[in-house]
Design a protein around this nucleic acid. Structure first.
Length: 290
DNA sequence: CTCCGGTTCT
DNA sequence: AGAACTGGAG
């Protein structure tokens, strides 16, 4: 059981989106930055921020030198700001321990902050053309449908090996991986798949008559959660170039004071916010000398 | 397994 | 009102 690499790759060569991090001349670090930003975040929202970001900080050392507070500010409202902190930490390590060059092997990449199983392989594959399986939610969905005939399925430890077995045994492997992700992103989508535009001639899901998915997803609310409160608190800190008082933070969320306190505490624990000696609050690294 | 943003589309 | 979005870490 496999996926026709020829069909998929030739479709990709013609139909791929013109994304800025896919253009020639983009460095491994800049691809790494795009992968951090794309974690759980749609392409359309990442694009403008990535363009401004690499123009301002094109290298790990430039990013490290900027300081974590400025990096958190530039991250803006992209979401999951812990990613920004980890990206800055990543820059510090690469600049300091790897001579400003992104490591090429998956094992080393996995040791860096914010880089997990997906991002390590995405960087190795897309930045260094390594023939490694790149498995994100899109790839998992495509493989589940085409090869297993199910609309969706939970992630399994086997997924990595299964996708590795699908890779063509030649130099087109990285393109095949990009194409698999692209197919999941624009054709074989979660909600309204465009099967009429699918380049694959064999698909078990189609043969089976598109059976419904059975996965019960968790609701992941946002309004009224601690995450929203954390966002409100960070809004205040991003907009201030100097530390703010507790009272200035308190007005950001008056609905539930216990929740507000819990949110602020979690930001301190995550290292996104720091308290100054006089008891005020600031973005982490605000006081550092750039 | 849970938590962690914020926007957009349906 | 839900769901989806190129995940990682505790």
């Amino acid at each position: 059981m496999s996926i026709d690499a020829e069909q998929l790759v030739s479709w990709y060569r013609d139909a791929q989106r013109d994304l800025p991090w896919r253009r020639p001349g983009v460095t491994a670090w800049q691809i790494l930055v795009s992968e951090f930003m794309l974690q759980q975040t749609p392409v359309a929202r990442v694009e403008p921020i990535w363009l401004a970001w690499i123009d301002r900080w094109p290298t790990p050392s430039a990013t490290a030198a900027a300081g974590s507070a400025e990096v958190l500010r530039a991250w803006g409202k992209l979401g999951y700001p812990r990613r920004a902190k980890r990206l800055h930490e990543c820059a510090v390590v690469i600049a300091g321990e790897y001579d400003d060059e992104v490591p090429t092997d998956v094992e080393t990449l996995l040791t860096l902050p914010g880089i997990g199983a997906y991002t390590a392989r995405a960087v190795a594959c897309f930045a260094y053309s390594a023939s490694v399986p790149v498995v994100d939610t899109n790839v998992r969905r495509v493989v589940t449908r085409v090869l297993r005939g199910q609309a969706d399925a939970p992630a399994r430890a086997r997924d990595l090996d299964d996708v590795a077995a699908l890779l063509p045994d030649d130099a087109t492997a990285p393109t095949f991986s990009a194409a698999l992700m692209e197919l999941g992103a624009v054709v074989c989508t979660a909600r309204a798949p465009q099967c009429g535009c699918c380049p694959l001639t064999h698909c078990r899901w189609r043969s089976a008559g598109y059976p419904e998915g059975t996965m019960t997803r968790k609701v992941q609310r946002y309004a009224g959660t601690d995450r929203q409160v954390r966002g409100k608190l960070l809004d205040v800190l991003r907009d201030s170039s100097s530390p703010v008082t507790r009272a200035q933070l308190d007005v950001a969320w008056l609905t539930d004071t216990a929740q507000r306190d819990r949110a602020l505490d979690s930001l301190l624990v995550d290292g996104l916010v720091e308290q100054t000696l006089d008891g005020r609050f600031a973005l982490a690294g605000e006081g550092e000398i750039p």
